[in-house]
Write a protein that binds this DNA or RNA. Structure first.
Lengths: 238, 238
DNA sequence: TCACTATCTTTCCTATAGGATCTTTTCGAG
DNA sequence: CTCGAAAAGATCCTATAGGAAAGATAGTGA
């Protein structure tokens, strides 16, 4: 986050070229400026990033597991098609299960995480305000602003999963994270969505501060269902 | 399953060398004849399988995601260490969540799956009987017998997940599947374990046949908790 | 005897090259 | 003009080779 990350690599910073290539391609995909269904040529990507095909190939295997790209043997990789209605429904069912379970695990030890959660919520509110302002101001919303908002949103949920102390739950959440992220940027339409999300997060935080486990679970459930409702609505609108 | 699968490859059967290499290494790991913590050299594996390092490397990336192998950048891959007590606990928490949720999703449509479930249970019972007989007979139990038993066990649970109609749930279950499998073979000690597991499966099937959702969920929960109890007991015994 | 260093070996990691396969384009026949 | 087939191009896939880093071993000094 210095000034403007170059697409070239050049210096491998002590953790393998494969991981850097993975990050770059992931960012490219999440940025959203690639057409779903379009081909992702190994050789082309390798030339663009100025590396050999081997690390690109490894990164693609990793990406395949996230569901962001699809692979057909001997035919290459493609950007995954957008989520259909049924896929959307399944995704939210799975996410609801995960978030509820994580909340239920963490809430009894609410005191240990409430500080981190409050800080995450503060950041989320801050970025949300900035985003709403930018949207109301008219014109194009800076990519950076939406990016920060999404990051803050993810961070809020991640606080809970990391505190759950269950590495498998965390891994599952991160697996779904990529899909969820892709969904988010496709959805975000009006300022009301942002306001509602902020309010729902606030209710979760309140329940944690009061140490009320059942209320926390209920609030989290309501939040995920809220996201689902808004997503489906925007899906149908388009 | 013709007669004796050769370690060499030779003919690539229309789905990429990478996938075949993955299957072979996976089987080798699940077979259990590799020491946890031992190194998995890319080049050595490539020579053993008579392929180049590239497809081996891709397969390892895939295996890394399953948790069966660990990777340290610039240091190579290792067979994952055995599950510690806390890891065991987390694994069962996660699996309990998944199995309960899947059961809850499927049970209302029990009629659609009860046939498959009954058949899976029949196979499980059959292999269990064979395994118990072999164990009581004394001497070494054939690898094939235990393998068939584990497969039948997995298949029983898979019926439910596939019927859930949620691809993310299924994917999560398969992710945990590798760890679960590794656990199983480390645990299996007495014939009572097999009998208890068979009984618990039977109760799940009964509840499905009666169309009683809550009973099915309770039976599944009891089953997973039973496996957990037996695993922890055997863990402490060793 | 112990600790430290330098060298050597092993292994990972990346790059380049060539064979096999799929896609596209072009040409010809109906 | 439409359809089918063949050839050219692009791409995936695998193999081989070489540079770089980590680990092991032997040797020297305190």
């Amino acid at each position: 986050m210095t000034a403007q990350l170059p697409l070239r690599i050049g210096d491998l910073e002590r953790r393998g070229l494969r991981d850097r290539v993975y990050d770059l391609i992931l960012e490219m995909l999440l940025e959203g400026d690639v057409e779903p269904g379009s081909r992702l040529s190994i050789d082309t990507l390798a030339k663009q990033l100025d590396v050999s095909p081997t690390p690109v190939r490894e990164a693609m295997v990793q990406l395949e597991r996230t569901g962001l790209v699809t692979r057909e043997a001997l035919k290459g990789y493609r950007v995954a098609p957008p989520l259909g209605p049924d896929q959307l429904s399944e995704l939210f069912d799975a996410r609801l299960m995960l978030e509820v379970e994580a909340t239920r695990l963490v809430a009894p030890r609410a005191a240990e995480v409430v500080d981190d959660l409050r800080e995450a919520h503060r950041r989320h509110t801050e970025t949300a305000d900035r985003l709403v302002e930018a949207m109301e101001h008219g014109g194009d919303v800076p990519v950076r602003t939406t990016h920060e908002y999404f990051d803050a949103d993810s961070a809020f949920h991640r606080v809970i999963f990391e505190a759950s102390g269950n590495r498998y739950l965390l891994a599952m959440q991160e697996d779904l994270g990529a899909m969820t992220h892709r969904l988010r940027q496709a959805v975000l339409r009006g300022t009301s969505d942002v306001r509602e999300a902020r309010m729902e997060h606030s209710r979760v935080l309140d329940a944690f501060e009061r140490g009320d486990t059942e209320a926390a679970v209920a609030a989290m459930r309501a939040h995920i269902e809220g996201v689902r409702t808004r997503s489906v609505r925007d899906e149908q609108a388009s």
